[in-house]
Structures are given as structure tokens and as C-alpha cells.
Write a protein that binds this DNA or RNA. Structure first.
Lengths: 207, 207
DNA sequence: CAGTGTGAAGCACTTCACAGCC
DNA sequence: GGCTGTGAAGTGCTTCACACTG
């Protein structure tokens, strides 16, 4: 398959969110125009995004909400359960796990880890916090798909290496650090400090 | 000034982080090569990014760490205090406020708001949670610069409108919703669900 | 000679415009 | 007639390559 741009994947998520709203409102069909309007993009962009994966619409009519949302869910791989381990029993992981749509979209917390002896063994959102040193051993049985890395910025790369050794192929990183992963492992970093600095820049350099 | 790409601003944040590390290690000069290596980009990109703002290096020598970090801090507007209000006294806001570099980069929490009567009046990370209905009134005296919006997805637009009415010109949004702001107001959205879906896509569509 | 600064070339995403189909 | 699907054109960011300077 042709390489799909990151921006396209992100828009598919947005389209899906609107399609779910239409489903809840029992609306059966929609158009690229309407999708664009509710997703902050253009009709042409919507059609182009979808065209990478097939032809899901009917000319002159638009898209079936049921079919299109099913197709997008399939494209995004949301038709199955994804087993998530949280590394760092802090607030970010906790916020993520209570995020609307986390369970709803098929993400399940398989285990929670920390390196802090104070936290290991304690309860955390219904899970007992495990020693991160056990990750590799646990992973054999737990078969986690995704690791959420939510620890302070020291030695983050060591934890990434551990996650990779555990055979996990996808990492969502919240630590403000640049990280290396081998080919075949996908890393996404959410850097809140950087977003704030982007706002600082915008406030400083507005006309 | 010529319009600066978002990606350029984000890289400046990354360069600054590395420059601060060099400062801590008492290293006085660096090069575009080194900056690129530690920022996950190319030397040409580093030089191009900086060239939008001036000529900070010396040919044949490289960049002074002290001068360059000062310049980038200036460009990003980090030379002053930014007053931040948190809307939503939950875990995300709390995680953000304890983020390394939040205070360090000049961001200060001016106030915390919520709409939930259960939370209003309670203590939250050293602040007493205020009623969000009071935001507009408080803003006159508090003069906040940035609003962090960390509430569930219902009626987020209403809160955005309130923030805009309060005269705040920058919003960092964590709710998974598409939002409209008038010109002159900068909105950045961090959507964790979308990032997870991006990982799901990558896992599903890898070769 | 080493490393910056920058016009030009390359590349990737977006927008256009229209043929094609319901 | 209306709306999709898509090659082609447009736009903007990235990479190249080299003149220039300490």
C-alpha cells in the first residue's frame, strides 16, 4: 500500500468521531461537504483521504454513515482489542485511562508499572502497580500491544529500550525527550511543554 | 515578519531543550550538526529554522550556546511570565502543572476553575477551585494569558466562548472536540485518543 | 578548512476542476 | 442534477549544494 500521511490518519479519527455522532442521532447518510464542515477541513480533502483506501461513497448521494464508519474503524484497526501497559503510575496515565473513548475504542489496560518502590504494590485505578523490572517477563503472558510512557524525563531511553525488548511495537510517550526506536516500532510523542511554548510564540509574535 | 511554520516553532523548542542541557554541562559552543543529531532532524533544517530569525552563528565555528539559547528563548517569548488558568480541576491539568519545565519556562498557574459544585471551593494543588462562571469577572484582575481546557467533551465550545469573552488569547485544549475560535485567538489541541488511534493504525498497517 | 547562511531544487500534502456515476 | 473519485496544478516545507566567512 502507498504510504499514508500522518495528517490523513489523524483526519480519519476526526471523521469517525463525527460519524459516531451521526449514528447516535440516527442519521443514515452524509457527504464530504458535511464531513469537512465538522472536521475543519475541505470536501476535496475528505474525498482524497478516503480515496487512498477505496471508494466508499455513491456519486450523487454521499456516504452511508454505517458503512463509512465501519470502514474507517477497520482502516484504523479499531475492530479489535488493544492491550495497553502504562509505564509510570502517575496522573497522566490515569487521565488517559479515564479518557472518554479509551475503552470505547477497544483500548484496555493490561497492567500498570512504576520504578518507584513507594508505588509498587499499591492500587492505581483498579490495578496493582507492578515493578517495571518485570515488564519483559510479564509481556510473554500479557502480550501487550501498546506502551504508554508517562515518567519524568530522566533515563526515558532506558525504558524505551526495555519496552522494545519486551516486544511491544507501539509507544505513546509523554516525556519531553527525544527517543530512538528500531525500525518496526512506532513512537508517538505528546509534549505538553512544547505545545505551551507554541502558544507563547503565538502570543509573542502576533501582529 | 514572514509566516513561520508550526514545525519550525516546535523544533526551536527541541533545540532549546538541548541547549539547556549543554549549558548544564558547561559546553560553550555547538554546531548545526550536533543540534540536528540531538533533535532528530538535519543540519540544513536547523540552519534554515534559525535563518528565519537572524544569523546567530559564526561560519567555521558554530553557535555560542549562551547566545543561541537566549535568542531562541526570546523568539519563543519565554523571557516573561505567562499566567495560565486551568479550566477543569482534574488529572490532566494537575499533570501539566507538575510537568518539568512548566514553572521553569515561566508558566504560572493563576487560577483553577471547574463547573462541578463538588469541586468548587476544594483545594487542588495548592489552589482553591473557583466556579468557572466567575472566569470573566476574575480575568479583569488576574489578566491570564493562556487557558488550559481540560474538561470532558460536552459543551466544550461553550467554555471556549467563555474563555474568549474573558479576553484570553491562547488556549491549550485537551478535549477531543473540534472547536472554533475567532481570529487573534490561538488554539492548540492535544488529542490523546487520536494519538492512540494513530498507533492502532500503524500496528494494523505495518508491512 | 570547517561550518554557517541561503537560493534553488525536490518532495509531499492540499486544492482544483472536471469526468463519471447514481 | 448532485456528489464522488481523481489526475493535474498549486503550495509550502525540506533537502541540496555551494558561496562565503572566521
Amino acid at each position: 500500500m502507498k504510504r499514508i500521511a500522518d495528517s490523513t490518519v489523524r483526519r480519519l479519527s476526526i471523521y469517525l468521531r463525527y460519524l459516531e455522532e451521526l449514528t447516535a442521532r440516527h442519521i443514515a447518510t452524509t457527504s464530504s461537504d458535511e464531513l469537512a464542515k465538522h472536521s475543519g477541513t475541505t470536501p476535496a480533502q475528505v474525498r482524497k483521504d478516503l480515496s487512498f483506501f477505496g471508494s466508499f461513497g455513491k456519486r450523487g448521494l454521499g456516504y452511508s454513515v454505517a458503512e463509512l464508519s465501519g470502514r474507517i474503524r477497520e482502516i484504523l484497526g479499531l475492530g479489535r482489542e488493544w492491550r495497553v501497559v502504562i509505564i509510570g503510575a502517575g496522573k497522566i496515565g490515569s487521565a488517559l485511562s479515564t479518557y472518554r473513548g479509551f475503552n470505547q475504542r477497544g483500548f484496555t489496560i493490561a497492567a500498570v508499572y512504576d520504578a518507584d518502590p513507594q508505588k509498587i504494590g499499591r492500587r492505581w485505578d483498579g490495578h496493582v502497580v507492578r515493578d517495571v523490572a518485570e515488564l519483559e517477563r510479564d509481556a510473554v503472558a500479557d502480550a501487550p500491544d501498546i506502551a504508554v510512557l508517562a515518567i519524568p524525563a530522566d533515563n526515558v531511553q532506558d525504558e524505551v529500550d526495555r519496552i522494545v525488548r519486551a516486544g511491544i511495537k507501539a509507544i505513546l510517550n509523554f516525556a519531553p525527550a527525544r527517543l530512538d526506536v528500531p525500525p518496526g516500532v512506532t513512537l508517538k510523542t505528546v509534549n505538553m511543554a512544547m505545545e505551551l511554548e507554541g502558544l507563547s510564540f503565538a502570543l509573542t509574535n502576533r501582529d
